[in-house]
Design a protein around this nucleic acid. Sequence first.
RNA 1: UCCCAUAUGGUCUAGUGGUUAGGAUUCCGCCCUUUCACGGCGGCGGCCCGGGUUCGAUUCCCGGUGUGGGAACCA
Length: 503
Amino acid sequence: MVRVRFAPSPTGPLHIGGVRTALYNYLFAKKMGGSFILRIEDTDRTRYVPGAEDYIIEALDWFGLETDENPIKGGDYGPYRQSERKDLYKQYAMKMLEDGNAYYAFDSAEDLERMREEAKENGKHVAKYDATVRMQMKNSLSLSTEETAALLEKGENVVVRLNIPSDRRIGFKDIVRDEVSFDTKELDDKVILKGDGMPTYHLANIVDDHLMEITHVIRGEEWLSSTAHHILMYEFMGWEPPQFVHLPLILKPVGQGKLSKRDGAKFGFPVFPLEWKAEETYAGFREDGFDKDAIKNFLAFLGWNPGTEQEMFNMEDLIAAFSLEKIVKSGARFDIDKAKWFNQQYIIAKDNAEIAEVIKPLLQNASYMGHSDSFILGFIELMKERVESYNEFVSKGYYFFEKPRIEDEKIARKKWKDENELHFTAIRTQMAESSSFDSDTVQGIIKGYIGDNGLSFGAILPILRIAISGTMKGPDIFGMMSLLGKEESIDRLHAGIEKIKAL
RNA sequence: UCCCAUAUGGUCUAGUGGUUAGGAUUCCGCCCUUUCACGGCGGCGGCCCGGGUUCGAUUCCCGGUGUGGGAACCA
């Protein structure tokens, strides 16, 4: 039975890279008929951000990445919040202590600082708390039993560190990267239990993954370097380690480094699934009008591909096609253009009624009230191929709900001829007299008039379009007029012509 | 600096000891549409570098370089 977990830390809003990690875990779990677990890694009390856990849950919920076990609904392996498992970790730290695989250390922040300074003076570029300095530090290895007991009694700066063996090669198999190995002399004696009694990530992680019977650890590549520590800890505990899968990181669109929360504002696109409001506000894909399925499809392809040329995948197909072996090894730059393209494709393919559910609140926010469902559905049909986000239905299609602003003044001026006055008066009269006003009828009236009077389409259509919608860009003019209705179309034609004349 | 990982058009990627190195996106052009968009067609653009093995290397080997990550009582 496959069991995987998504284990974010509630230190702020869930990053889009975290969403991808969650997605891959979910896809793998579903593919294998296994369980997908949410575990909250809140062991750092100084970085805890209220609301972050709710945000994580809401984001997963928005994407429909349902978890089988989580802090809210529980499960057979709970609790699922590490802060609630505090006592558990201590036991295992004690076990490692007893076996000599860990030791107490009593160094103060100043002691550690001094150690680092000295290392630097000795020409070392990296200062690690390891076998080379271990015996010069204040710990249960360097101190006598009595001294140790006294310091333990005092209780200041007491941490538990891993006793990393020297001269060993720790190797493991990563499903994406194959064999990876580290020399233990590169590894530091990591703190596993902190002064406040909380475990660090490393301890909590292996204890929980073991206790929760996690079979595959699918996480970001930033963890690759500490995996040797984890393997060693599984060994110390006599536990079977899970399979490891380190995902390539998502990089900035341009420049150096991984995608960060600042990049959103910098490049003008969201890097978070949902909007996050704190001292600063960070944009969210949802609020920016992205479709959740489009984002999932986009994210799935950032670091993975099925090896075929298909790239539009619904969840079911994605689950069927997904495999850990096809995960790409190198980091992927975040490309918002690709995300927008996926979004547009999804909007076009989406059922109008479904789109209506999403955009109705947006229309309300813009104070566009009181429109019938059929009007909204007709509006969606006309606009869906012309927007790349849900929000653009409102920003680009505003003139379906209020009087248009003349945007293409230059074209209007250029196309305006005095005789248009006469033509449009005649057209208005014909429209007023028409008993029906469907798209074909409107088209018949306009084209008929043009034909009967030996005019060119170019003499009439651009002015008509600008009068109705204010812009040269937009859906089929006859469809728009029909949807707007006879009264409104005639009114706009009249008012529009007056405005154009005055330009 | 050390360790680990990684390297195919601008970006996301497929793939191979002999291929015109494929797809997607972006950009450009044409067609469709007397608008825009969608769609269709076409184009620009690529195997990190240097050695070696080989009849032949983008592919295998060695060495560089670039890039990413890590080197916390953070995750």
